[in-house]
Write a protein that binds this DNA or RNA. Sequence first.
DNA 1: CTGAGGGAC
DNA 2: GTCCCTCAG
Length: 267
Amino acid sequence: MRKRKLYGILAILLVIGVYGYEHFINEKDVAESVREGASVKSESRTFYLPTSTTGQVVHHNGYSLSYSEPHEQAEWVAYELKKSHLSKSNFKRPYFEVDLAVKTGAASWRNYKNSGYDRGHLCPAGDKSYTKEAYDETFLTSNISPQTHDFNSGIWNTLEQKVRYWARKYDGVFVVTGGVLKGDLETIGNERVAVPNQFYKVIYDAEHEKMIAFLMPHRDSEEPLYNFVVPVDSVEVLTGIDFFPELEDALEDKLEASSSYKGWSFN
DNA sequence: CTGAGGGAC
DNA sequence: GTCCCTCAG
């Protein structure tokens, strides 16, 4: 094991320890965060949804998604990550369930069993730990994509943690994420769930009017995260999705053309 | 944190 | 299928 990797894991364990301690001393605050979580539901599913290339948009309490039936997974999952969603409990992981809200029939979790691929969350469970209900809702088969364990637990996990860091630092961000569902893709299971060759994430900080996008090959990397920053436009060309179409056009054009990560702290 | 799998019931 | 346990990056 490389030293850098070892330090990363130790840092993660430290973070978990701190959260556990905060939870221990702040138990009386949990009820308040539950109410706060409940109050953002309608807001989070009406703001800043991308366009759908498949015509099947599904809204859950904590996130929305656009399902691609041919690929048996979402082309995007979108949600607001508020500062108040962060910290707090680590719940017991439930079993994945087929998302009955997907009219064409979401994939079964059995496709992933012994496939060699993780059931990789698109909206991470770690972003929805403010209530058990919100947490469990991320364990729907419409919210997962086949990912290698090295990638999922490696640089993708690092990016997800960075997004939580930004949500805390910038008082909330909007997140859109998914695999790139183009070309001939490997499939797993009887339902032929496609294995993306690339995954993307688009982050919008509304308060400070800045946007950043990441495009990553489906493999782990030791490179720094900022090496994977791309203009939002390039992800739109690749996927056919229009991100944040509700923004005023001039602002949208300006933000989406940039591949600069000025204003985004990578510390 | 991100996940997997085995075995008893 | 559910629950409990061990394990890895």
